[in-house]
Design a protein around this nucleic acid. Structure first.
Lengths: 207, 207
DNA sequence: GTCTATAATCTGATAGAC
DNA sequence: GTCTATCAGATTATAGAC
């Protein structure tokens, strides 16, 4: 049952190709991914890629899934139960916001692939879409643990965070113009949706 | 000095080409604009387009400028001085938000061209960029008239609005999932940034 | 102004030898 | 598994006849 060395080697090559693909889209833009360039980057000719992936869309699909898994990995250690670590709800919320903002703005091409619909010829496979849904489910669980269980409140939260990241990426790429507003945006969200979170702690204390 | 009939006819043809280009990008996506298809739509062959536009990028540029002019036209009648029309500041702010949301979500391709950087080969000309800056200046003037003169507050406002529109376009195209949150988002913004606007009027009265 | 013809280049994908 | 060779098509853009 365990994968033999041939399967391991094969998987390593696939990983190497995907890593090269990330390099390429970061450099050329998401839509600028060309199989010839990709093959060259791993020391192959273009047709050889088809031994590892069925199509270009299949490559996007693996990147899509990998991107969501990376998102989950970077957000899983977020404290879900405030009392256990001594961090209050407002602090956890600010931490979530900064983590999300950093994840998105640090790799605009990935943000584009995961959260926007800009490559018309790519539709996530059922399997990959399930991963995306699962990640979204974790997000709602974390917010529910903080007392936000209304779907509309969660939609407002995601709109607020994607708005900040989107403006940062589109209008000040590489800068910090909207990054500096993350704390203020979170405070605004708390004041309007859960003012009790602010009363329990000292305002303005951001880790 | 006045344009003769030849110049008028030429401008009409240019307008017709641009209108066809809008149709095409709405249908095929912004990046899917092909000169062959565009020419066919106006009953020409592709090379004939070069009598009217210097390049494909030039066509994008005219669309970019036209899009910002349309934005200005749809937002110019917004009441800048509340007292004159009897509408209070909160009402004007809600109106602005709905107008912006409608403008963006009603034409995602236009939103992509005007507010996102997704066509790497297109860079707005100096003239067109000036139009964009002018429109942004009008927006800040309107907000300043409502008492929002802090640049960071304005950045927060634009982040909030683009976040709502972006989520609507990306995750519920054609639906109303985030549209229904516009009023709530505006209230949140007012509560946190200008609570006095809410005290002066009855909450929840939306035109 | 509009056309035909074509340049020059790119794309994803396949067949078949080795 | 990897290659060469190639298909079949797309793209923007130009030259030059009419």
């Amino acid at each position: 049952m365990s994968p033999d060395r041939r399967a391991v080697r094969r998987q390593e090559t696939k990983d190497e190709i995907i890593a090269a693909a990330w390099d390429l889209v970061r450099q050329q833009g998401l839509a600028g991914l060309a199989l010839r360039d990709l093959a060259q980057r791993v020391g192959m000719k273009a047709p050889s890629l088809y031994s590892y992936f069925a199509s270009k869309s299949d490559i996007y699909d693996v990147m899509f899934r990998e991107g969501y898994l990376a998102f989950a990995a970077e957000h899983d250690d977020l404290v879900v139960e405030p009392d256990r670590t001594g961090a209050d709800g407002a602090t956890v919320l600010r931490r979530m916001a900064h983590r999300f903002f950093e994840f998105c703005t640090s790799d605009p091409a990935r943000y584009q692939l995961l959260f926007q619909r800009t490559i018309p010829e790519f539709v996530p496979s059922e399997e990959s879409y399930a991963v995306a849904l699962d990640v979204y489910g974790r997000l709602t669980s974390q917010l529910a643990a903080l007392g936000f269980d209304d779907p509309q409140t969660i939609d407002l939260w995601t709109a607020l965070l994607t708005g900040l990241t989107d403006q940062q990426i589109s209008n000040d790429p590489g800068g910090t113009r909207w990054e500096g507003l993350v704390d203020r945006a979170v405070d605004m969200f708390i004041v309007a949706n859960a003012p009790h979170l602010l009363e329990a702690t000292t305002r303005g204390s951001t880790p």
